[in-house]
Structure formats: structure tokens, C-alpha cells
Design a binder for these strands. Structure first.
Lengths: 330, 330
DNA sequence: CCACAACTTTGAAACGTTTTTCTAAGTCAG
DNA sequence: CTGACTTAGAAAAACGTTTCAAAGTTGTGG
């Protein structure tokens, strides 16, 4: 283990002052081509790597951002994360990942760790509507961009997808396929996304009744239970709209097992268009959200806000979801 | 935005010296209960948050670790990541996530960023066998633990799952179900995991021939293509072993579409036991790897190495995979 | 009542950068 | 050739912690 090489070692080797090395590193245009070359040479020879903490301490800002998601196991968030990592990495930022796992205390603890690390900004899918923790971050000078959650304030960036439109699109599609009775299988109706998708569904029905089946979780298992319940109760609708693909996949499995044919007996549509939607035995129609894009754009907004605070204009971006038709609604 | 409150503000408020505040923060047992209480009170009143960079700079080590994975979109790595995040968060460490996306240059760039951040250690699933970049990290005093890759050296921790045993288990299970001809559908045979699983499969066959179908990717799409190819060629085996569940799901779909019944006509088994294996129309038998555990243990090893370097004993841990029987091989 | 040990607390230096101020050396017009 | 102006680089002062030797405090036994 060779002793750590610092900016002064580089300076000595190149025959310049430490300040000049710093300039080469941070504002190369301020330095003449000749000395720049000398310094770069020295950096290479000595294998110098800048000490991020020292840099952060003195400069007052770091090259890291925080990402706080609700469930890292959900393909939706995984895709978002991939998009975030991509952009951050391109711009030389490191991403600190934290998973609130739906727990508010864990989220709070994670945000504290992020504050200690003096991250430049935070991308967060908040686990509830309470804005005080985020305000506290902002007070500390940490920028915040909301992900998959529209901002309520104009001085705040956010990136989301219109879930009401998504609900409407899904149900309209089912109606246009000839369905007359429709059921909505959803997760907890405390979750904004579930509520909005329901509102959209009802809007499409224009007053006709929507049978709502609320499950505690949004997993394949829950979907299968919902299927069992509907079959036991004996009256299947013409079509089923599930609030996410995990539910829909479980539902598909439950129906198929009971001898119900999809889409002949019952049409089925999910939400999110995760990779596995296309891969199931009867491929699943779904509402696609630009997840990867969501992560990319959120990160671009955040880093723009950090790097160009004067020209930055806050934006609340709302993407539109997209209908993907597959076998389950043909 | 209130002006940043530092350790000296806290000291002043509590009527002690900055050194004492630092002691309360880092070695509470060195401080009398009375002053500790005073200091903690002051911390709370002022909303003090320690400046991680300053701390890292002075103390010489940080409270962050790096995690470098090959494909953040693959549920296998997602599960590992969740385990890592869990343990790190419990112990107050932040996790910097980087995704090499299979590209060696990207991996290299990411490792540089991690080195700049002076992470305490790195968890990495290396994208190839070349050990020089890892040696370079170790030279810098950054501990390295290999994930899903057995270490070749004794002074190095690693956590992996025995893929040879997994291959043997899968094929033995197929044989015990009465299969006589078996095909192995795999990703590129440059990938260690694919090779090992094949070796295990051949071991189970004890000399009997194994038909190997090598695909360029390990995705549902590739699995479906493999199915189409086998059906076109006209001779289906009794059973198929796929090198991961994504391939197997695609295979299942391809077979079902061609009217081949699983498991009646062909038995099918995958690998990884991702969540969706249980959720498909014909639930998929698979080889389960303790993915979450993999992440947890790797992190525990790394942090033990960091926090107790004198008592730490390097370990190469090899987990055993587990057979999960579902409908596709009944 | 003193010497000594055990325990607390202090104060200043140091960690490796960035930033700001300042000097020296060019450059150019008159 | 001078003086104003520009530019490149040097020197030193921060940034907010931790550390460590030293000083201070308390308690104990003789």
C-alpha cells in the first residue's frame, strides 16, 4: 500500500504550486497549455486521485446525490434507479441509494445519513404527503426533486406520470373491446397512485358502476387471492383492470387455474408494463410508464438546479402513460 | 436557510470544548453522563448534523461503501442490493451504487468515482476475471469483497453460490422425474455462472449427452427464440434446464404457444427463483439462490473487515443452492 | 492533609483540498 | 521606452472535524 499521494505531491513533481494543480483539475482553461500538460503528466505518473472529502469540505458542495425509493425490489423503481444512475454517472456524480421500504422512520434515518454526507441534492419518492422533512432538507441547502409524485409548490421540481389518464386509458380500452362490466383490483387506497388510477377508471365509465376490490399488497400473491375471491363469489366481470402488473400476473395465474380463459372469458389489463408482462404465458396488456425516462429526467432537473442555480427554472413535469396491447385483451 | 451549525456552535451552547462534543459523538463512554446530556441537548436544540466530509478528511476513513453490480435491472442483483442496503443502513453506512452494465470501461470509471469518494470498501461482482483494478483499489486501502464470484486468493473475502451443485441438482431432479433426453439452454458460455451450471448438469448425467443451446442474451425474448428454434428443428427433449428464470419464462411461453404442454410434454426448470417464477401461468420450478442473504453476508464481511481489521478473518463463503419444485416439473 | 491514581476535559494542530489575494512577467499603444 | 493593462502562477488562509498530549478535577489510602 503506497502512501497516499496528494495534490502537493503532484505539484512538486510538476514543479508548480498546489493551487495550479487545483486549477488544472477544476478550471483547465485558466491554465496555460504547457503547464497543464506537465501537471496532467504528473497526475498520471503518480496515480493521483482527488480526495473527494477534502474537496467537498473546502468547496462547500459535493459530487453526490441521494436517491430515496420506497421499494427497491419493485421493477418500477429498479428501472427508475437505472435511469438515475446512468445520468449521474455520465456527469461524474455518485448516487447514494437508500430504500425506505415503506417505513417512515427508515426514510427519516436515511435522509439524515444523506444530510451528513452533504449530498448535493436528493431524488425522492416520498412515502407520505407530509412535506416537513423535505422542507428541512431544503433549509439545509439540499435540493429536492420529487419522483413519481407531483409537486404541490411552484418552487419545487417534480417528475410524475399522469395516473388518472392511465386509468382512463386502461378502462377505455377494455370498453372498446366490448366489456360491459369491469372490476378494478387495487392495492391500498391510501396510495396516491391507486386512488388516481381509480378516478381515471371511473371517469372512463362515465357513471357506470366500477367494482373495486382492494387488496392489502400489490404482489402476485395478492392478485391470485383476488382471483380466488372473485371466482368464489361466482360473478366474474367481462374485464379486469389491475393497479399494477404484479397484481395482474397473479390474477392471470388464478384465473387460468380455475379454467377461466383470458382473454376469451375475461379480458385483463395491468399497469407499469414491467418486463415480465410480455413474458407471461398469455402476454399481458398494460399501461406503460416511461420509468427509465422518469429517472433520467428527474436527475437532469436536479443536476441542472445544482450546477446552474441562477438560470434554473423549476418544472413540474407530467408524463403521459401509454397503452400496450397484448394477448390478454385481444 | 439558516446558517450551518458546526460542532463549535454546539460546544459553545453546551459550555464545553469542541473536542468534548466530538467525543460525545464518537466515543460517548469517554464522557461523563452529565456533560453528555448537556451536549446532546445542545445538538437537538441547534439541529446539528455532523459534516461527513470534514469527519472523513480528518479521521481518514468514511462511512460509505461502494456497490458495483453488472446489471441493476436483473432481479438477482436487485435482491442482492436490497440485502446490502439493509445491513449498511443498520450500521449507519451509506451505499454508493454503480452499475457497470456489463461494460468494462464503465466499471472502471465507476471505481474511480468510488476511489475519489474514499469509500471504506467496495462490494463488487466483477465483470471479468482480470484482478488488476481490484488490486489497485486494495493498494489504496479500499477493502474489496467479491459478490457472486469466488475469490482466488486467501487474503480476500468473497461470497458466492455453488453453481456446479446447482446444475447438478437441477438435472438430477429432471432425471428423477423420468426424463431421458435433456437440453441446457444457456447464455454466453463466457460467463462463469453459465459454464459452472453446465458442468454441474453434465456431472448429473454422468456421461450421457447434454444438448446445449447457447443464446446471446439471458432474457425472456432469448428464451422464446430458443423454444422456436427447438420446435422448428422438430425434436424436443423430455426436459429443459434453463440457465436462468428469464430464459425459462421465455421458453415456457414459446412452448405453450406452440401447443407443447408443460410439464406433460416437456418438463422445465429455471435458475434463480425470481419472484415471477412462482407467478407464471404454469409456475416454474427453479434453483433458488439466497440472493438477499448474499448481499447481507457480503456487507457484514466487508464492514467487519473495515471496523475490526485486527480480528477479521478473511472468508470465502460458498452458499448452496436449493431446489424449488413447482408445476413445471410435476 | 498529602500524594497519587483515575477519570474528564481542554486546546491546538492537522487532514487535503479550494479560493482569494497578490506578485511577477508579458504585451501593447503611444 | 514608459506606463497601463493582461495573464500565469504562487502563497496562504480557510473549510469543520478528530486526535492527542497536557491540564484539570475528583476520589482514595496512608
Amino acid at each position: 500500500m503506497h502512501s497516499p499521494v496528494g495534490i502537493r505531491d503532484v505539484a512538486e513533481r510538476a514543479g508548480v504550486s498546489p493551487g495550479t494543480v487545483s486549477n488544472v483539475l477544476n478550471r483547465p482553461e485558466k491554465v496555460s497549455a504547457a503547464t497543464r500538460a506537465k501537471v496532467e503528466e504528473a497526475v498520471r505518473e503518480l496515480g493521483f486521485v482527488r480526495h473527494g472529502s477534502a474537496s467537498t469540505l473546502r468547496a462547500g458542495h459535493s459530487k453526490t446525490i441521494g436517491l430515496s425509493v420506497i421499494d427497491i425490489g419493485n421493477p418500477f423503481f429498479t428501472d427508475v434507479t437505472a435511469g438515475v444512475e446512468e445520468v449521474a454517472s455520465e456527469l461524474g456524480y455518485a448516487v447514494i441509494l437508500s430504500n425506505s421500504a415503506g417505513s417512515r422512520t427508515k426514510e427519516e434515518r436515511n435522509l439524515l445519513v444523506l444530510a451528513e454526507q452533504r449530498v448535493r441534492g436528493v431524488l425522492i419518492t416520498p412515502s407520505d404527503e407530509d412535506p416537513t422533512r423535505l422542507d428541512r432538507l431544503r433549509d439545509r441547502g439540499i435540493r429536492v426533486v420529487l419522483v413519481d409524485h407531483p409537486a404541490h409548490r411552484a418552487d419545487q421540481c417534480s417528475v410524475a406520470v399522469n395516473d388518472i389518464v392511465g386509468g382512463t386509458t386502461a378502462v377505455s380500452h377494455l370498453l372498446s373491446g366490448g366489456a360491459e362490466s369491469i372490476a378494478y383490483v387495487t392495492g391500498p387506497l391510501t396510495i396516491r397512485q391507486c386512488i388516481d388510477r381509480r378516478v381515471g377508471a371511473e371517469r372512463a365509465l362515465g357513471g357506470a358502476p366500477l367494482r373495486v376490490i382492494e387488496m392489502a399488497a400489490m404482489t402476485p400473491r395478492a392478485g391470485q387471492q383476488a382471483a380466488a375471491k372473485m371466482i368464489a363469489e361466482g360473478d366474474l366481470p367481462d374485464a379486469i383492470f389491475c393497479a399494477n402488473d404484479l397484481l395482474a400476473l397473479g390474477m392471470l395465474r388464478g384465473l387460468t387455474h380455475a379454467g377461466v380463459r383470458v382473454p376469451d372469458d375475461v379480458a385483463l389489463i395491468g399497469y407499469d408494463d414491467i418486463d415480465f408482462a410480455a413474458a407471461s404465458a398469455v402476454s399481458l396488456s398494460s399501461i406503460r410508464q416511461p420509468t427509465h425516462q422518469l429517472g433520467r429526467v428527474a436527475t437532469e432537473l436536479l443536476l441542472d438546479e445544482c450546477d446552474h442555480p441562477d438560470t434554473h427554472a423549476h418544472q413540474q413535469i407530467m408524463f403521459q402513460p401509454e397503452l400496450v396491447i397484448r394477448e390478454s385483451t385481444r
